[in-house]
Design a protein around this nucleic acid. Sequence first.
DNA 1: GGGACGATGTAT
DNA 2: TACATCGTCCCT
Length: 180
Amino acid sequence: MKPLPLEFAARDTVEVAKDLLGRLLVHRRDRRLTVGRIVETEAYLGPHDLACHSSKGRTRRTEVMFGEPGHAYVYLIYGMYHCVNVVTGGGAAVLIRAVEPVEGFGAGGRGDGPGRLTKAMGLDRTHDGLPLDRAPLFLAEGAAVRRIGSSARIGVDYAGPVWSRRRLRFFDATSEHVSR
DNA sequence: GGGACGATGTAT
DNA sequence: TACATCGTCCCT
């Protein structure tokens, strides 16, 4: 399984969000692989996007979003769940909201939901800032997506009418593993 | 040093 | 539809 180069993420954030659909997210810990096929993403466009963490300023937490594209931005939400993002640079990133289990998910391990997929794949803040083109955490080629659906992003009403309504959520319309 | 607030998930 | 649970950020 060959990692995608960092340049994969050095493009327009919406393009990266769509292109990530169908790709594989791979976590190698010890000798074991956990692999998920990405089926749902959300684009967070940068400091001007009021739903994006970087819109609250450049802080220690959001610093990685201003760094090199292709790195992971992982944060804790609601004190219980971790969320993984692919940094595209300039304060922007793509949240991975759902994956379809491919390999290494234990019995009952699910990938449909940002908190679920990180739990099932064993991802947490120790992965924050890691480059996504090498072990332990990387992106790889996958099966192309036939039909891409889109909608408003989930849970961002606080960002106001304009930014909460923009259709920046993308998903594999044929997948059974998209979150609800 | 304190308090408000989530890019969620699960159970009721 | 309630609520668990805690890091981050901002205020004092």
